[in-house]
């Protein structure tokens, strides 16, 4: 087990280093730099001014040199400053990450809590009205574009009914209820989309599991239908679902750009987008690496979960 973890950790480190260069190079290859944007906004800026600013921001160096400078500083714990916000990268990143964790974490939890029971319910009553109803809901969740759903929710709950704020985030001294009120619509938007796909995965996996011999045996032994489904089948049916959930869990921390933009939620998705478009190398790089690291961690967690869910699976040459 220890060997397995160590090996995966090393692999992850290598992936992160490679990714850091790839991301840096890709952002660097995009045409235009921040000084170009300043020039277009200020007709009085001379070539000498632009050159001086490029030197100050280190944009006059070749890309590999800039990357090396960044890497050596990062290894010493200095992740640099965000050019867009003029603050240390972590000072910008962590609040956004916090907002994303709260938003996406809540949406994820809600999605799992709804999708697994209704997916299981649909599978346990195949071709029934319940099954069709759940399928319809799931397909709607998968098919509806998030921007449309978000706008519809705003129109219904903010504009028409006036129950909830249309967007933004509660102020620092807001109470719990006010804070939650800002979260309801974005959480509902993200959760609805996830519920659709998780429900479908759960239903398919459960249908497959319910065909196994040991399920028939359990029924033959007199176990109730409910017990068979929820006690015997669910744990096995969850194995493929967990893979999806674990992968999604990693991606959750990259934020949801469309939802965050429409609801003006200051999370990671919007931050990464703004950083890339604004040529904020340090911020974009660290944010994307953060997201990469979390996806890798989520993958590792998925592997560990397999072993927990299915004792037949062994990892790293021994049982967990």
């Amino acid at each position: 087990m220890r060997r397995f973890l160590l090996s995966r950790l090393l692999q992850s480190l290598v992936v992160l280093v490679i990714m850091s260069f790839v991301i840096y190079a890709l952002i660097g290859l995009m045409p235009g730099d921040p000084i170009d944007l300043m020039i277009s906004a200020n007709p009085n800026m001379t070539a000498a001014d632009a050159a001086a600013l490029r030197a100050i921001y280190g944009l006059d160096l070749p890309i590999y040199e800039r990357y090396w400078n960044w890497l050596t500083a990062a290894l010493q714990g200095d992740l640099g400053y965000s050019r867009l916000f003029g603050q240390p990268v972590l000072d910008v990143l962590l609040p956004a990450l916090g907002n994303t964790v709260i938003l996406m974490g809540t949406a994820f939890t809600l999605a799992v809590m709804v999708a697994i029971p209704i997916g299981t319910l649909a599978a346990s009553k195949p071709r029934s009205a319940v099954d069709y109803g759940i399928n319809l809901f799931a397909f709607a969740g998968i098919s509806i574009p998030s921007f449309w759903l978000a706008l519809m929710l705003i129109i219904i709950f903010s504009v028409s009914l006036g129950w909830l704020p249309a967007g933004g985030i509660a102020s620092a001294n807001a109470g719990f209820v006010e804070y939650i009120s800002y979260m309801v619509l974005p959480v509902l938007t993200i959760a609805t989309l996830s519920i659709g796909s998780y429900t479908r995965y759960t239903r398919s996996s459960m249908l497959e599991t319910l065909r196994h011999d040991y399920i028939r045996t359990a029924r033959a032994k007199g176990a109730s239908r409910r017990r068979v489904v929820w006690k015997h089948a669910l744990r096995n049916a969850l194995i493929p679902v967990v893979t999806i959930l674990a992968l999604d869990f990693g991606f959750l921390f990259s934020g949801a750009l469309v939802t965050e933009t429409i609801f003006s939620w200051p999370g990671m998705g919007k931050l990464i987008f703004d950083a890339v478009m604004g040529n904020d190398f340090n911020l974009a790089l660290v944010a994307l690496l953060f997201a990469t690291a979390l996806v890798l961690t989520a993958n590792l967690l998925a592997d560990l979960c397999y072993a927990w869910l299915d004792p037949r699976i062994v990892i790293g040459g021994g049982k967990v």
Partner: peptide, 11 residues
Amino acid sequence: SAMEANLLSGT
């Protein structure tokens, strides 16, 4: 679009 909705909702 969200800006308009925010205005209409009074946010």
